[in-house]
Design a protein around this nucleic acid. Structure first.
Lengths: 221, 221, 221, 221
DNA sequence: CATGAATGAGTATTCATTCAT
DNA sequence: TATGAATGAATACTCATTCAT
């Protein structure tokens, strides 16, 4: 029972409660992501999530209180992850440039984290009809994205990159709506639509609002 | 109590079995349309449909065999309705003209029959995750629409209206995917996106593939 | 429109209502027999019977009033058929001879009309637990069979063929009970038990009650 | 309010989860036994079982997964119980002695645990037509019983107790088939057949295969 | 922190039966 | 005679949730 020995032999397998909680959290959210992406939200039971994460049937409820709570937690974690991801790539850009970069970031998210993206859209779809209670939270997220696009479009309008008669609010909604439709199709219906083609098409929606370079000088004056 | 009157007043309360069936059919499909549009497919029980149609809980199953059968019947009736609708407006047009007209017809469908359109999209959404069994049927419908767009695009390509390097198959998929995303958004999330703006944006996706008029003559010659 | 011609051309396809009724009766009972034998009574729906007979879902109820009524009708027809069948083969025999012949007749019924026999036993099994309402009718049939066996055994007892201390009532019950168990097993569980072996074994139950030939003379005296 | 008293009066109301599970298991299986015996398997709903056991409608499904699962659990517990029961009484016996003892054990089971026996036979009957999925499990149990009888008959044949021309496999099937028919009749149709008479009759089926004592010496030599 | 026992509401589906044609 | 439309009750099964350990 020499103190030193104990320290040596069990380095510290003493994981704090916090560690355990964090790990189980991570594993449950990961499991939920995978299951939501594949089976949709309604099609996934809490018990399934717990078991897929390697825990018991009851843990998800114990941790998140309800199915709704789990979805919220997942939504939060995905939003945070996405936020930093986009912030990086867009930093420093302005106007049309920033808008195009944001679009590219969305498409890239779908490319690099198809599961997470599919899960996010599954939650979005669920919020449309089956679980209206999700609307506020999902809506806020989408609204934030739209708001950021609007900022870019307004800058572009001010600088004369895009036409003055464009309704930036609405144009941003259109860009994101089309993007959503195309990405959902790509991820969930085993569609062959190419992600690059999707990005280009949506970028086209931006260009379509742009002032032709030739005319631009006039606009600026 | 003139004999003649009696004959006049009770024309024939004798509804044939076919009449009864057709009426209950119509009423149940209408009820299902409304409920699917509002609550989604999973969120709507067969009992609800029967009762909303003014019949018993059990009638929908008795008539359509299963929830799946009801959805199929609804899908069929909607497809037929839409088909004739579009056929009318597009007849005689070719190339870009036909494509734009088809897009307008889709948007118009959403404007004039928002419930039916929302129900159709609700079924589409359901097929993505919760009820994969719907895929073949839903897929076939969407595929038909896409095929018809492809025809128009090919005509346009041949006549030099749109660029030769466009992949018509994929471009049709993009047009419809974006359209779907925008219409869903419009109908289901109480979005303020204007239907005209949606139509114009999607039309823009077509124009973006077009050869500029100036260059066109060269291409033709 | 010469009368003669009409008579010639349609000999009389004029089947009376009675004919039609009898034919549909026959076909429905045949269908019910087949289905009961294969799927049991509870496992067979009235609609199934009507359709299997080549008619509508509703005919069985229309004809027999209820599922119970159909079973009764079937039971009656089977009882009648069996009765004449056994009467023929047993006529003229008495005592042990008659008893053995009856046993053979039962086994033979199972051999020659396995479907009808299986259906009969399916109804018997149903009467045990799921449909107690069938008991009186089924019980009466079995009781009649037992009674006839008792007669034979009594004759045998009187003539000294079987021992005086045998309780004929009970012995008849045992013979039929064992027979039933074995035939059910043979028909319904795909058992390999040979029908001849079954007949011999049950015959053995009779012989076991017999006075050994050597001792018989004494008994007679 | 003496501290000691409190300790005494609340011994440990602390029932472990295992305790709870075992008790509810026991109570549900007991309830199922009673209900199956009285109303048959199809005639008994899972909700009924749960409520009869003093729990909720949903517990049986939660515990056993499905009606099939409940039946399997019941079958297992009954098989185990019966196995030990028979093992005791038969231990040490061989040949005809062992066979007769097994028969007696079956009859005794029906006498002492009529409910359990009736439930077992109800499941057997159900497996014949209504729930063919039960066949493998039920078949295996019956097959085990038959196999054990065969062993005894073979020993008897080797030692010259029974005739060499007897097909032991089939004879065992006949013994059990007859026994089943008679016990079912006794338990389920409120038949007056005496259990002792049943045992004697079935024992007679064994004796009928025996070599007469007089002849036996010859056979042995 | 984690497990799992127990509940109860909801839902598709089957089916005998009634009723209109 | 026969069909089939419509009803309503019953039932297995799913699942979020609550509660005890």
């Amino acid at each position: 029972m020499v103190p030193g020995m104990i320290a040596d032999r069990k380095p510290p397998p003493r994981r704090t409660q916090l560690d355990r909680r964090e790990e189980s959290d991570r594993r449950m959210l990961r499991a939920a992501t995978k299951l939501f992406a594949r089976q949709g939200v309604s099609g996934t039971s809490l018990a399934e999530v717990g078991l897929a994460a390697g825990y018991s049937r009851g843990l998800p409820v114990d941790r998140y209180g309800s199915k709704f709570g789990l979805i919220e937690a997942l939504l939060d974690s995905m939003a945070a992850w996405f936020e930093t991801r986009v912030a990086d790539s867009v930093s420093g850009r302005r106007g049309v440039d920033a808008v195009l970069e944001r679009i590219a970031a969305h498409v890239d998210g779908a490319r690099k984290s198809p599961l997470a993206t599919a899960a996010l859209y599954a939650i979005y779809l669920e919020s449309l009809a089956a679980m209206p209670a999700l609307r506020p939270k999902v809506g806020a997220l989408l609204e934030r994205w739209r708001g950021e696009l609007v900022v870019g479009l307004r800058q572009a309008q001010t600088s004369g990159e895009i036409r003055g008669d464009i309704d930036c609010e609405q144009h941003a909604a259109i860009i994101l709506g089309a993007l959503r439709g195309l990405v959902i199709e790509h991820l969930m219906a085993d569609a062959e639509t190419d992600l690059d083609a999707i990005r280009d098409a949506v970028a086209g929606l931006v260009r379509q609002a742009m002032v032709p370079p030739a005319a631009r000088k006039v606009a600026r004056r």
